[in-house]
Design a binder for these strands. Structure first.
Lengths: 227, 227
DNA sequence: CATTCGATGTCGTCT
DNA sequence: AGACGACGTCGAATG
């Protein structure tokens, strides 16, 4: 890992073209040759970058300034013209042991699979990741009357999720095995449901369920936590 | 901008929980207090981070190690426990002049608005960003027979785009002013169309058009380029 | 290898 | 401020 603070100009050509005028920035060069150009603001996304695999060539411009040219296999090019280097250091970091995560959609699905009745009274699980021709339904359940209920789970309930569940329901309702006792209902479950998504869902007869992750986790054995 | 290379452990609690075991990493602290934790691999995304607005407090753990606690307004917390600092430096970068881009969907839309006939013979533009109750149609056109044609433009033609155009067509076909001469057709235009999207579109009677950005740009005045 | 789908997505733009 | 769509989306899981 090389860290360089330099006054530089950056040009990228690839899927799009982008240009950064001359200014002072931080350049991070990782062991795999990838390069990140960071300013002192914004979020974690660099102003410009080159993803690995790529190669960095150091050279000189016609007027004698240092120039880095980073190229990827797909001919994307990042050209960094350096006017002045203010700081430079190199460090051996070794391989990172990596990140452990807990609390993403998969966990939400696991929790709801264990406690389907929190979505609707009397609901029981038939199967998780119920397969259909156009992809798996998150939860397939049965209600107190024995009717099939398809549940789509999102962390954030957007219009896309409603469309997805609609496609599933359309398909499922053509299956006589499922519709024997009546129409397959849908439940759209998310930690947060956007107003437009709610309107669209309810317009299509799909119920919305806002899920409390922490409360659900409380119902579960606390020793099962990752860390 | 502060750059620190340190052996550290990182814990994040917010929308999810995440944990990084003790290892040597680069910590980037931006002027706005945001923090990025980078390893010597991966892509431009940090292993962990805190986005602004946030505040960093430096303290000591019970066993006397340095600890940084970064908290956001929404109570997200990033806790960095430092075992050893290998390098530290601070730099004044100033405000970055910012990025100029060229070649995104907006340009594609402009180019197709200038050359609608490349989508379908005899097509002429009625209006860009044609307003409807559920959002603007990218291009509203008329074909040689005087029938209305709605065009949805994407860089990458995904199933979502077909759904979007379908919603527009549903609405537009309820408007007697547009349907006077016949049904409003749809054209789904993209630089690349995914197989599933193509199948769905054609099943719904929506034509697909693969767009060659470079060729279109060639039709245009080359002096209009940004840089 | 291609495709699909989630993401602490992030980022612009518009209401 | 909230909603919405694009992104050089990235990245993991899966067929």
């Amino acid at each position: 890992m090389r860290l360089v603070v330099a006054t530089c100009q950056v040009d990228y050509a690839g899927r799009l073209s982008a240009h950064l005028p001359m200014a002072t920035r931080v350049l991070m060069i990782k062991a795999d040759g990838s390069v990140l150009v960071h300013s002192d603001g914004g979020s974690y996304k660099p102003l410009n970058w080159m993803s690995p695999p790529c190669t960095l060539r150091e050279g000189l411009t016609e007027d004698g300034r240092t120039e880095w040219v980073v190229t990827s296999k797909t001919d994307d090019t990042l050209r960094i013209t350096i006017e002045e280097i203010h700081h430079e250091s190199a460090h051996d970091l070794g391989v990172d042991p990596g990140l452990q995560k807990d609390g993403v959609e998969k966990h939400l699905q696991e929790l709801l699979a264990d406690h389907p009745a929190t979505l609707s009274d009397g609901l029981t699980l038939v199967r998780r990741e119920f397969p259909t021709a156009i992809g798996p339904v998150d939860l397939m359940c049965r209600d107190a009357e024995g009717l099939s209920v398809a549940v789509e789970i999102k962390r954030r309930g957007d219009i896309d999720g409603v469309e997805q569940l609609t496609r599933y329901l359309e398909l499922l309702n053509r299956d006589p095995l499922l519709t024997g006792k009546g129409t397959v209902r849908g439940i759209f479950a998310a930690q947060e449901i956007k107003p437009q998504a709610r309107v669209l869902a309810e317009d299509r007869g799909i119920a919305c369920a806002v899920v409390d992750y922490d409360a659900l986790r409380g119902l579960d054995d606390p020793t099962e936590r990752l860390f």
